[in-house]
Design a protein around this nucleic acid. Structure first.
Lengths: 258, 258
DNA sequence: AAATCCCCTCGCACACTGTTCGACTATCGT
DNA sequence: ACGATAGTCGAACAGTGTGCGAGGGGATTT
């Protein structure tokens, strides 16, 4: 039996006397290729060529391609910048996270399959989780629901942007752009939706609108729903805390008011 | 320029005099391999061998591998069975969809990256959407929020099960099973979470509990939040409908009561 | 009965992938 | 000056998806 579970983050990096190639350079170059030409364009040989070195040289700095993927994935999380959880309301925190993460995913669409494939244990992902937990805890979320809340928020963003980007990717690869693109695919969709007049009706309504705006509105809608639900849970948490330890208020604002 | 947008569902199948191979057989065999050995084990040669034919014979029935993937993906949607939307409350409908879809994803973990990669235009996916829309519409959701609501629900389930299965897959591939598996990885996680004591604390709490139970509870929590939020939106829809067309009640129950 | 057609199968070949191995160089500490 | 070691690299291997053209076999037409 090999190592039961391993990740880049468990092996510390090579001594790194920093001669020609370095882990950071490799990751940066990989991200450039990924952003510019998509996930299929990233091969070790290609990456080596971009760095002016042989393909197999990379294997000195990186164990295998999956590790490289873990690294670039965390780099995406790193682009997200959250405000100080000590002075930001949990709702602002949640909104900023949702929009920020969505923006990061849109900018780097190739991460979506990664997030759905390998666990996110990188330092940037950890930092993000930590900050969210802090903000939610400060707001009054207590232990079991606390984590559930953060996870649910992340799940929503990921699950939302995935299919959204699947559309865009398929369309972008067709070489068209803008609205004619949506119009062209409408014919296909129409054919696929044969026999489901309700779906067809829905598509027709949207054809008139700007798809980007529709997508943004829909994302907003989902986020609002989630926040509404979380508010209810938060109230339950506070209620329970008050009942358990009557002397101590779970809400810091309320505590300062006393 | 080629076809701007294409999908299996737009090309009707070959005439199909049904000699040896057929599209259904291929899809079924592909699913068996995928379920038994995962996505990496599915190669065209392997699939051909399982069907007792050459690898390239498949290309008569299927344009390329991506098309095959679209087919198997829709097959997964097909395993989902929803109750009659005409007689089921939207909330029951939503819960059944959420749990059913999650079960289907757990049973066929390899679909997750697919759903995040290619649009779901298959007949089964369409049928599902159609049923959900019908139930929600009957409940009183009006047009723009109607679609947003269904999309949000799907996004939640997808986004939730993705990372959840990423964990399980990584662990299962390590050959261990049950609780010792979580324990083994705890060491790795602990190392990765260095410097984030709040995350560590959280992991410690969970180590004592059954991970499956925790995951189920968390899923429940998220779904409850979402339903709470949707309930609020539904009330808004009904309110608006009542204001716009005062003579007609949007709620069928209420209509029958008049 | 013979010839034609067309559905379908399949072997070969191509360009490509991730990764291993052993040979090579350049720089460092002694 | 010398050995060690960090780092690079070319060749090779076992795979991958897929295009092409040659065929087989049954039905249809002449």
């Amino acid at each position: 039996m090999k190592e039961p579970f391993s990740s880049v983050w468990t092996r510390e990096g090579r001594p790194a006397k920093n001669p020609g190639l370095s882990r950071d350079q490799i990751v940066r170059a990989a991200m450039e290729i990924l952003d510019a030409e998509g996930v299929d364009a990233l091969s070790m040989r290609r990456l080596g060529a971009k760095l002016g070195s042989g393909a197999t040289s990379l294997y000195w700095h990186i164990a295998h391609k999956d590790e490289l993927m873990e690294l670039v994935m965390d780099e995406v999380y790193g682009e997200l910048s959250l405000p100080d959880p000590e002075v930001t309301s949990w709702e602002d925190m949640a909104s900023i996270l949702a929009y920020g993460l969505r923006a990061a995913f849109v900018k780097h669409p190739w991460v979506i399959p990664l997030v759905g494939t390998m666990p996110s244990l990188g330092p940037n992902a950890m930092r993000m989780s930590s900050q969210m937990l802090k903000a939610f805890e400060r707001a009054g979320f207590t232990s079991p629901p606390l984590d559930y809340a953060v996870s649910t928020l992340l799940a929503f963003v990921l699950g939302w942007t995935g299919p959204e980007l699947a559309w865009r990717a398929t369309l972008d690869s067709s070489g068209m752009s803008g609205r004619e693109l949506d119009a062209a695919m409408m014919k296909t969709v129409r054919q696929a939706a044969q026999g489901h007049p309700d779906i067809l009706r829905r598509f027709d309504e949207y054809q008139a609108k700007d798809p980007d705006v529709v997508r943004a509105l829909a994302f907003d809608f989902g986020l609002t729903c989630l926040l509404d639900g979380l508010r209810v849970r938060l109230a339950e948490c506070r209620e329970r805390a008050r009942a358990d330890v009557p002397g101590i208020a779970a809400d810091p604002d309320e505590a300062s008011r006393t």
